Simulated assay, not measured.
Amino acid sequence: MADAYTGDRIILKDLGFYGYHGVFAEEEKLGQRFFIDLELGTDLAAAAASDRLGDSISYADIYDVVKAAFETRRMKLLEAVAGNIVNDLFAAFPGVSWITIRLRKPEAPIAMVRGEAAIELHRQRKPA
């Protein structure tokens, strides 16, 4: 069987959001920056041949789903935030077969001079 995360993909990187996700009271009160990288596996052959947006998935539509999922539910864990985004993307775009999401938190409340905390999820669409 081929690797599930191969083939055509739509990629969005460094999507920046300000949010109030976190375990600590200061995170929920003050908020902080978050960055999201996404890869969505979908067949892009029709769009490549037709040059029509209707044969693909609009980056703007993907962004709108990510923004709504990120902003409407406050979560304690990055894993839960990313899981919500993945679920909403699968619901919105039936042609997406797999998603890789990396959620980065550069101002995590740990004593680091440089760097960021992050999680990455790899999810395949569950069979109907």
Score class of each variant (00 low, 15 high):
Asn84Ile: 00
Pro94Ser: 15
Ser97Lys: 10
Ile10Gln: 05
Thr100Arg: 14
Ala117Ser: 15
Ala118Gln: 11
Leu103Phe: 09
Phe34Cys: 02
Arg33Ser: 13
Ile119Gly: 04
Arg104Ala: 13
Thr42Cys: 14
Leu121Trp: 04
Phe17Gly: 04
Ser50Pro: 00
Glu120Lys: 09
Gln32Ser: 12
Leu89Asp: 08
Arg73Ala: 15
Leu53Met: 14
Asp3Val: 11
Arg104Pro: 01
Glu28Gly: 14
Ala111Leu: 11
Val81Phe: 08
Ala82His: 02
Leu44Arg: 04
Asp14Cys: 09
Phe93Leu: 13
Leu38Ala: 07
Ile101Ala: 02
Met75Arg: 14
Ala46Trp: 00
Arg102Ala: 14
Arg123Thr: 03
Asp3Gly: 08
Glu28Asp: 13
Leu77Gly: 06
Val96Gly: 10
Gly19Ser: 10
Tyr59Ile: 03
Tyr5Pro: 03
Ala25Tyr: 10
Phe34Asp: 03
Pro94Cys: 13
Pro109Lys: 13
Arg102Ser: 13
Ile62Ala: 08
Gly41Met: 05
Gly19Glu: 07
Phe24Gly: 00
Leu89Trp: 07
Lys67Cys: 06
Glu28Ile: 05
Val66Ser: 01
Ala60Arg: 13
Lys67Pro: 00
Arg74Trp: 08
Phe34Glu: 02
Ala82Ile: 04
Leu77Val: 09
Lys67Tyr: 06
Ala92His: 07
Tyr18Gly: 07
Val86Trp: 01
Ile99Gly: 01
Phe24Tyr: 15
Ala60Asp: 12
Asp37Thr: 06
Gly83Gln: 07
His21Asn: 13
Arg9Pro: 00
Ala48Asp: 05
Asp88Gln: 14
Gly7Gln: 04
Pro94Thr: 13
Ala48Trp: 04
